[in-house]
């Protein structure tokens, strides 16, 4: 069994656990960032994203129930994260639907589960599973470090493209702007919780396992978006930027 890592060693290990398969490098993200998508592709993206992150408050609620009272700072963080998703400002899913509507979609289409890919439903099921069944430190590692903390790196590339290349207004694209910054902070606080409470080698290794799995799940989901909705229109993805990692995605 591995030894207990120091906080700084563990942080590096967590960062390395998802750095090889980041969703920002998947074909759909790359087509987005290089201005190749059509508005209809964004409607599909928003619809699937709605079914993947729409129940984020549920996931956090399950994690909250699994967090012991002595970890009060972790409980408070989860509660605050839930509040920020749902109530502190515009509801985040409403901002997502605002974007879909700007692309020609409708609220009813986005909210209809029948319009989501099996991959999106699989992602949702995985998140319910991990948040409901795993130790709170492990689920924090999976959902907050593995998934939520990736968001700024994805949207920081995609947001300027939405404004400059695709011609959306800042208001229409507010979902992305909001998440660039709020998920920086959620992600960082997630790290602080995981570093503090993963206090055995077993827990640290389990966190690393789930961070890898989370990154793989999101990468596969993002790749499926391209294959399902974009490839029929644009053909297989061909990466033109030599600096991009050679991922088959």
């Amino acid at each position: 069994m591995a030894d207990l890592m120091s906080h700084s060693e563990f942080r590096v290990a967590l960062e390395e656990a998802f750095s090889g398969t980041m969703a920002k490098d998947a074909s759909f993200s790359r087509a987005w960032a290089t201005g190749k998508l059509h508005k209809q592709h964004f409607v599909h993206w928003a619809t699937n994203h709605y079914h993947y992150i729409g129940p984020f408050g549920d996931y956090l609620g399950l994690m909250y129930a699994n967090t012991p009272d002595h970890a009060r700072d972790a409980k408070d963080f989860l509660l605050q994260n839930m509040y920020e998703e749902e109530l502190s400002d515009d509801r985040h899913t409403d901002l997502l639907i605002r974007f879909a509507e700007a692309c020609g979609g409708t609220r009813a289409y986005v909210q209809d589960r029948n319009n989501a890919m099996p991959f999106a439903k699989g992602m949702q099921g995985w998140m319910y599973y991990v948040s409901g069944r795993e130790n709170f430190v492990v689920s924090s590692a999976a959902l907050i470090v593995g998934l939520e903390s990736q968001v700024p790196s994805i949207y920081r590339t995609q947001y300027p493209t939405l404004i400059d290349k695709y011609g959306f207004s800042e208001w229409e694209a507010e979902f992305f702007d909001l998440h660039i910054t709020s998920d920086e902070i959620h992600g960082e606080r997630g790290y602080q919780i995981v570093l503090k409470y993963a206090d055995t080698p077993e827990l640290q290794q389990r966190c690393l396992h789930y961070v890898r799995e989370a990154a793989d799940m999101r990468f596969a989901y993002t790749k499926a978006l391209y294959q399902t909705y974009v490839e029929p229109d644009l053909g297989p993805w061909v990466e033109e930027d030599e600096r991009q990692p050679a991922l088959v995605g």
């Binding site: 920020e84 502190s88 400002d89 909001l178 902070i185 992600g187």
Partner: peptide
């Protein structure tokens, strides 16, 4: 703000969303 939280620099904050 992320760097301030990471390094415990006591910048006051509440919402993280502007």
């Amino acid at each position: 703000l992320r760097m301030a939280i990471r390094e415990h620099c006591d910048v006051p904050w509440q919402c993280a969303s502007g």
